[in-house]
């Protein structure tokens, strides 16, 4: 089990024990974390699992693929240097991510 911390737009911090094989997206859905939708089921089709990675062993994060890079062009919240798709991030290492608030 690896601890993943999700900080939500209202400041709430939720700590989730991710199971082996989980991604940041699937662990959030399994733990009912608001704001991570995962509409396409982790296929890099929808960009609804956008997160900002605040604290992570950066060297150990998988490099961003071209596909992820291109899908990040259609996130609802602004893309920053910390932006990743949760479905592309394994949970082998503890991590703190911020879940973007959605402008209405």
């Amino acid at each position: 089990m690896t601890k993943i911390d999700y900080i939500q737009s209202d400041g709430t911090r939720i700590t989730v024990d991710a199971a082996p094989g989980d991604t940041v997206m699937s662990a959030a859905i399994a733990a009912d974390v608001d704001g991570i939708v995962g509409e396409c089921g982790g296929n890099m089709m929808c960009a609804t699992c956008h997160v900002y990675v605040d604290e992570a062993p950066a060297a150990r994060l998988p490099a961003m693929t071209d596909d992820e890079d291109q899908m990040l062009a259609c996130t609802e919240a602004p893309r920053t240097a910390l932006s990743r798709l949760g479905c592309q991030l394994p949970t082998d290492e503890p991590m703190v991510v911020t879940v973007p608030g959605i402008p209405t």
Binding site: G21, I29, D32, G41, N43
Partner: peptide, 24 residues
Amino acid sequence: QRPPLSKNFLLHAETQTELRPRSF
């Protein structure tokens, strides 16, 4: 969700398909 049923779910039994947990 149904999209994985004709793809990954056929290859990997552990593919997650539930949209949300019961607590949702």
